[in-house]
Amino acid sequence: MSGMRTSKIGTIWFVIFVAGLAALPFINDSRSFLILMTQICIFAVFAMSYDILLGFTGIVSFGHCMFFGIGAYTSGVMLDRLDASIGTLLLSVLVGVLLSALLSYIVGMLSLRLKSHFYAMLTLAFSGLLLVLAEKWRSLTNGNDGFTFPIPSVMKDRTVLYFTALAVMVVMFLLLRRFTQSPVGRVLLAIRENEQRTESLGYEIVHYKVFATVVAGMAASISGSLYVLTLRFVNTTVFGMDMTLNALLMTIIGGVGTLFGAIIGASIIEWAHHGLSELAKFHPIFERWIIFFGLLYIVVVLLFPAGIVGTLRLWWLKRRGRRLEQSLQADSNAIRKEGAG
């Protein structure tokens, strides 16, 4: 029953949080601020998708950007070649999701039966392959330079775009949370904790791992589609190692295994990105943002090994555990007294 009360409190906080985000455009309508907030929402979805792998199932991927890139290019190409309508946009998101699901499934089936680093290596190989494909298939992608494309006219409004990204983030958060709390999601956690024991309880591990990678791939594809929608431009950077590293950093800094942590991690990294590029006007050292993220990473890993949200949660669980223990102790003392009396 205390669990139910907790989840109710959690829901209230989440509603307040979302309401706060929704009110932002009315408080500060500067263009750069809205763009930043939109990016945060998009990368939060990408980071959550990575968290399904790393935090919930314990799978490491070095090529998660490939699904982000598939969504990005699918939406870019379809909006460019077909028409710039809402219908085409939605269709392109759907096609991207299906392509990503298919590729996730293939990569997963090829490698997830083997030792865990095979998946990491194979995703790295596939994302590299897709990067080369995007560079070489010039007729479709215009190579390294990329191409600009038109977007549906309502989406040209920064505020509309922000609300779209916010809505997608909230919906994805709720869907993924539901998934992680479902019977399958619980088995994913069990696999993360102790794979061999999970199998000995009667669960076929590879099914669950493939399931997790397919869900993560689909979610990443959606974030990729949204990303290029805000830029009205796509090039090969979407398949870059930086993208995967971003997701990894956001997930770890926010706290693995907590979807909300991915949102916090995305906010911090995107803010830092923004802040550093402002500072770069004063000194070029600040352009080397990877140095600062490296430092940030070290600080977080040293001070909060479970990430920011993860550390808070642990602290809270411990406190609750201690209170529970104390009340049980009191109970048993009372019983002992009764027995003695």
Binding site: R178, F179, Q181, S182, P183, V184, G185, R186, V187, L189, A190, E193, T198, L201, G202, Y203, E204, H207, F211
Partner: peptide, 25 residues
């Protein structure tokens, strides 16, 4: 995982609920 969840996972398997991904646990 909590003590309860450790055992609940065994019960879930015994009941054959293995690939349900939509219902909240």
């Amino acid at each position: 995982l909590t003590v309860l969840e450790n055992v609940r996972l065994a019960v879930q398997s015994q009941q054959g609920v293995r690939l349900n991904w939509y219902a909240s646990a």
